[in-house]
Amino acid sequence: MNWVVTVLLVLGVFFFAIGTIGILRLPDFYSRLHAAGKCDTLAMTLTVSAVALYNIHGLSFGNILVSWKVFAIVFFISMASPTATHAITKAALVVGVEPWLKKRGPRK
């Protein structure tokens, strides 16, 4: 059980790191959202389920209740994170942030 928790945590931190590097390296606003939205969702799901798994080792009533709450966080995050990304993109489009497009001919 401990090994599973450790692996999940390490994977989660890895994807958090990818998201952070992505948000620093990518060239324009819209592509940064790719890194932010996707990697954060996956990383939060992984780390938070690691916490929930570690927490049920005692298997008492209080522990199960806490784990339920942790899974509520997972559920909420997986719904809220794309919504937030969508809201930011919409705001950017309305405000008029230009997407960075490569210089090339029109697409066939």
Partner: peptide, 14 residues
């Protein structure tokens, strides 16, 4: 699909 997309972002970012 979320896992796949994160791996793809990983590939592009790195």
């Amino acid at each position: 699909e979320i896992v796949l997309s994160s791996l793809q972002v990983t590939y592009i970012v790195l």
